[in-house]
């Protein structure tokens, strides 16, 4: 090391370039070699959440045993033909774009329930979830919610079963009007409300907005299938 001056400009530039290249190669190689495994994890998690929304335990019930069909709906609630499972799960990765494009993924369970994905904004970042409805397209069968950065102990409580189980049995329609289910500060007063989380008001507002706007996109489908009964 004594041969050259470690503080000369040329050395500094060469040092930085070599360092950056080495680090870039290292990170790129790691990222590429782990990509497949990470993708599988993410896909698996989506499937598990769908199963969980339907009230089954993902540890015992496999996705294929519970869900009969994954479909893509258009704006008026009709099935878009020619979409395979991969397309549908890809759409879940970017729901905003998918909803904007008029494509609404839906999962039909073997017992007649349906699961729809919803997406919104919490206090610190995105929140998303899956809501399962009974075959009457009105009663909530179950809900799974997740977030990327809500405050642990406050907004992040939306991921706990305490909060999520409160949604079960609530109804999303008042007569023919879609009222969704809201988290109400001060406690639930009717069958379209559940208790909000104290200290997590902003996150709860986000959940309300997410459910309302998400379910609205599926309204034509719900109406069509409700009247069939």
């Amino acid at each position: 090391m004594a041969k050259f001056n470690v503080n000369s400009n040329a050395y500094i530039i060469i040092y930085s370039v070599v360092m950056v290249v080495i680090v870039a190669v290292l990170l790129a190689v790691t990222s590429l070699s782990l990509q497949e495994r990470q993708g599988e994890n993410i896909l698996n998690e989506k499937k598990q959440q769908i199963v969980k929304a339907l009230g089954e335990d993902p540890a015992t019930a496999a996705y294929g045993d519970v869900v009969a069909e994954a479909a893509m709906l258009d704006k008026s609630g009709n099935k878009i033909e020619g979409k395979n499972d991969a397309d549908i799960f890809n759409a879940l990765g970017d729901l905003t774009a998918s909803f904007d494009a008029g494509e609404f993924p839906i999962f039909k369970a073997k017992n007649g329930c349906v699961v729809v994905p919803v997406y919104g904004a919490g206090l610190w970042g995105p929140i998303w979830g899956y809501i399962a409805l009974e075959p009457d397209m009105n009663t909530v069968k179950g809900i799974v919610m997740d977030h990327s950065g809500e405050t642990p102990g406050l907004g992040a409580e939306i991921t706990t079963s305490n909060v999520q189980s409160a949604f079960v049995g609530k109804t999303i329609f008042e007569g023919d009007e879609l009222v969704s289910v809201t988290m109400r500060k001060g406690g639930a007063t009717n069958n379209h409300e559940v208790d909000a989380i104290s200290g997590g008001t902003k996150t709860c507002d986000g959940v309300n907005e997410m459910l309302k706007s998400g379910l609205t996109g599926y309204l034509p489908y719900f109406n069509a299938n409700k009247s069939n009964k």
């Binding site: 090391m1 503080n7 050395y11 040092y15 290292l26 990170l27």
Partner: peptide, 22 residues
Amino acid sequence: NGIPSRIRIIVQLVVIAALVIL
């Protein structure tokens, strides 16, 4: 022993950031 002292903070940041990403 090889780090130029003038850019040592930057080198530290790069190493730490790379480790965290890993």
